[in-house]
């Protein structure tokens, strides 16, 4: 008897099991994304872009047109497609390097121009595919291949606060949030709201997902979850950083912009 796992409809079954490491957060982010796409019914319109690094393993992941781009260039490629074909739902998927290092200028400019694309970034505090070098989101004191003695914040600064940066520079109709693979239901909701922002043609949407990388953290299951659930949130606050003004007004709560303390 074969048990067919419950996969999002948007997933391509022929390329499963996927190639991500056991314990990797990517599989979970993409599951939440797949479910969001299913629930919003937009699979046919999706164009999915992935970056260089572990995100590139999603190049054949969905039953959706996918473009694997260059490192950091997923945002501009998706921007280019969206501008030419506004009917498509353009999703740029990347890691911490693709969004906050080499891709930072593209992220900043797409956000400033309020491009109607959705950028999803998996944050696992290192450059995993290339062997675990420091990333902009590496935590203070954290050991990586290029910080063998621990990240020195005097020398290299503090972990990038991406969703907060995006929130500060986008217009009122943008959406910016940080979720975590430790809470998939919440992450899925953030992804849905982000995609909704594009579907309803309001503006830019950005979701960072705290993600796990046991392979480069060298952690067993217990320590992986501890790092993800206890340690990372000390530096990366989970929650919606910015919701579009229209939605805030409609929902009648005191949501809206909030600045990180």
């Amino acid at each position: 008897m074969t048990v067919v796992p419950n996969m999002p409809k948007a997933w391509r079954i022929e390329t499963k099991p996927h190639k991500f490491c056991p314990g990797c957060g990517h599989g979970l982010v993409l599951k939440a994304l797949g479910e969001a796409i299913d629930e919003l019914g937009v699979q046919e319109r999706v164009v999915f872009g992935c970056d260089i690094g572990c995100s590139l393993l999603s190049w054949d992941f969905f039953n959706a047109d996918t473009v694997q781009t260059h490192h950091g260039r997923t945002t501009p490629v998706m921007t280019g497609i969206k501008r030419a074909r506004p009917d498509r739902i353009c999703i740029a998927y990347m890691g911490d390097g693709g969004g906050y290092a080499i891709g930072a200028q593209h992220l900043v400019n797409a956000a400033t121009r309020n491009e109607k694309i959705t950028v999803i970034l998996a944050n696992n505090c290192n450059y995993a595919m290339t062997g675990g070098q420091m990333a902009p989101t590496t935590l203070p004191e954290m050991k990586t291949e290029t910080t063998p003695y621990g990240r020195d914040v005097e020398e290299t600064g503090y972990p990038t606060q991406g969703p907060e940066m995006v929130a500060a520079i986008t217009g009122e109709t943008a959406y910016s949030a940080r979720g975590t693979v430790a809470n998939l239901r919440q992450l899925k909701n953030y992804l849905k709201k982000a995609l909704q922002n594009q579907i309803e043609e309001r503006g830019f949407s950005f979701v960072e997902a705290l993600s796990a990388c046991p392979t480069n953290w060298s952690t067993n299951a217990k320590d992986t979850w501890h790092f993800l659930e206890e340690t990372m949130p000390k530096y990366f606050k989970i929650g919606e950083v910015k919701v579009p003004v229209k939605e805030a007004k409609e929902s009648n709560t005191s949501q809206g912009n909030h600045t990180k303390q």
Binding site: G97, A101, I102, Y127, T130, G131, Q133, E145, T146, T147, P148
Partner: peptide, 14 residues
């Protein structure tokens, strides 16, 4: 900046 296959130059330098 990391890129395979030269990463170990950086790893050993650091």
């Amino acid at each position: 900046y990391p890129i395979t296959p030269q990463n170990e130059i950086m790893h050993y330098w650091t």
